[in-house]
Amino acid sequence: MESKILNHKNIYYPPGGILIWIIIFLELITFGIALIVMVFYGQKELEIFHTSRLQLNTTIGTINTLFLITSGYFMARSVSYLRKGQKEKSSLFLKLTMLGGLFFLGLKTIEYYFKIEAGLTVGHNTFFTFYWMLTLFHVIHVIVGLVILTSVLVGLRKNPSKVAIEDVEASAAFWHMCDLIWLLLFPVIYLLF
């Protein structure tokens, strides 16, 4: 495994690298502004947003939150084991991380299926326009995260000596970013109105 000692207290070397943190901030600001606009419209159409929110399945949203948080925990442990040179355990926890992501996508698919069946599509009302745009955009991030983690897993299997811990940390930071975005989406979309 390739690694060099980085001082994370240096402003240019946050854990995961400066580039991934610039992306994280841009993503958080984008989703943050979209959610603030959603709350703004929510106050204008209070009744519609309330009745629409009640049509969402909070249980599925909650279970998905638990999946993503647990998946993030597995990712943190995978990075921790890799730093200690325990590649087998790191790979195992990486697989568990990806499993959490796949469960999230599975439940989201079920949720989307029932919404489409009920006719609650993107043009149904303002609430569902925001719901579809924000959650689908997040789902795309989760899929991209899974692709990145798959490449890390393949690297760990085929040529572990070439895997740089900085790259794994950056991949982990991207995965945790999906958690952070969901932690903003979940309360506003599923609970607030």
Partner: peptide
């Protein structure tokens, strides 16, 4: 509660506590 969870993930899982 959402803010507390956000801080938990960023500072602990993402190790932001080690950053500048």
């Amino acid at each position: 509660l959402a803010a507390l969870k956000f801080i938990g993930i960023s500072f602990c899982f993402m190790e932001l506590k080690k950053a500048h």
